[in-house]
């Protein structure tokens, strides 16, 4: 997964995703699974990589491509919190806030990020559309508190002081 997951998010959402290379990529997965349904999570990732989020049109398209119903696809997509079912800012920031990180000051890191991105509150997108910030549950890097994910880039041991430096890398 590249670090430029959200680069193409302004593609017209009503254009199909599974054409050309993306279609080839999906079809290359088919032999790895005995059912088409099993390609659902990978297919949703492909949509999100291409568009930055998963629109209702894209859900319908995934359903068609894999022989499922849109309702089924939506039920699965809403189960997994990493799929964006609404548009998000150019860069998506996930800050761990579960107990181990909380013990190490994740609240302060979150505060700094909200302030410096201009997002103001958790879950919001900054007015310049540059960042969306959410608090997530355990990122599995508790020894490197506080870990944050910006798009697909992992940053460990983030402190309030280090926030500005990290953000600067995401114009």
């Amino acid at each position: 997964m590249s670090g430029t997951a959200h680069a193409a998010r302004h593609d017209a959402p009503d254009q199909p995703v599974f054409v050309g290379q993306v279609k080839d990529k999906l079809e290359a997965l088919f032999p790895s699974y005995p059912t088409r349904m099993a390609c659902l999570l990978p297919a949703l990732w492909m949509v999100q990589e291409a568009r930055g989020w998963i629109s209702p049109d894209a859900i319908a398209e995934v359903a068609t491509v894999l022989g499922l119903t849109p309702a089924y696809v939506r039920g699965v997509a809403t189960f997994y919190t990493m799929y964006h079912l609404h548009p998000v800012g150019r860069h998506f920031i996930q800050v761990c806030g579960t107990s181990p990180c909380h013990l190490c000051g994740s609240d302060e890191v979150m505060k700094a990020i909200l302030q410096q991105t201009g997002c103001g509150e958790v879950g919001a997108t900054s007015p310049d559309d540059r960042f969306t910030v959410i608090e997530v549950e355990c990122l599995g890097a508790c020894g490197f508190a506080t870990p944050i994910l910006v798009d697909d880039d992992f940053h460990d041991s983030v402190t309030p002081e280090r926030v500005a430096g990290v953000l600067a890398r995401y114009p």
Partner: peptide, 12 residues
Amino acid sequence: IDIVLHRGAGAY
């Protein structure tokens, strides 16, 4: 022997 990597999507 084949190995397929399967990516989760945010669910403990």
